[in-house]
């Protein structure tokens, strides 16, 4: 039974997701989706690694084509994918240019991922409630991430939002 968690920045999504993966049971896999571009990204990765230290996760680096990491892992294990946001960004704004079809591709891949590996928790980011007027690229990205989120919310058994470290359940029960 897969879990989808979203919410604002620094509201406890990753910590919650780590607990869900732990509850699913071993072996634990952490699907690391960030492709670092600068010192800030490197620092963020080190911070996340320190947060996970001692939890027993094996890290699978997978910035694109997320299904590929199932070939390097036991699909009966527990997977923490952090995050749908980074996966979409990597696919949509790739080194070879802009990919308008990335949202459909990422949504389909993640839905297939949770079908093949049901003990998966996917983290996303709630970026939908500000009063800004964006350029078309940003709008396409935001609309695209919403498409990915909604597909996952439909495919997952448990859907929740993290708010100030608290978990609001919209669908199903916590694992």
């Amino acid at each position: 039974m897969a879990t989808f968690i979203s919410g604002g920045c620094k509201n406890g999504k990753s910590y919650f997701a780590q607990r869900v993966a732990k509850a699913y049971g071993a072996p634990l896999y952490y699907v690391a989706t960030m492709i670092p571009h600068d010192d800030e990204d490197d620092a963020r990765i080190l911070r996340h690694r320190a947060d996970r230290a001692g939890w027993g996760f094996e890290t699978l680096e997978c910035g694109r084509d997320v299904l590929a990491c199932l070939e390097r892992a036991d699909a009966r294990g527990s997977f923490l994918i952090d995050s749908a946001t980074a996966l979409l960004s990597n696919e949509m704004f790739a080194p070879d240019g802009f990919h308008a079809g990335a949202p459909d591709k990422v949504a389909a891949a993640l839905v297939e991922f949770v079908r093949r590996a049901p003990n998966t928790v996917v983290v996303s980011d709630y970026i939908y409630s500000d009063a800004a007027v964006y350029d078309e690229w940003t709008l396409a990205y935001r609309r695209g991430l919403a498409r990915v989120d909604r597909a996952l919310a439909q495919a997952c058994d448990c859907v929740c939002e993290a708010v100030a470290g608290q978990i609001i359940v919209y669908k199903g029960a916590l694992p």
């Binding site: 604002g8 939908y128 409630s129 500000d130 009063a131 800004a132 007027v133």
Partner: peptide, 22 residues
């Protein structure tokens, strides 16, 4: 309605007024 209330206070005065009026 789209909820537009949760981001940073916009620098642009019109968008700031929009956020409040909305």
């Amino acid at each position: 309605a789209d909820d537009i209330s949760c981001g940073i206070v916009p620098v642009d005065a019109t968008l700031r007024a929009w956020r409040e009026a909305n």
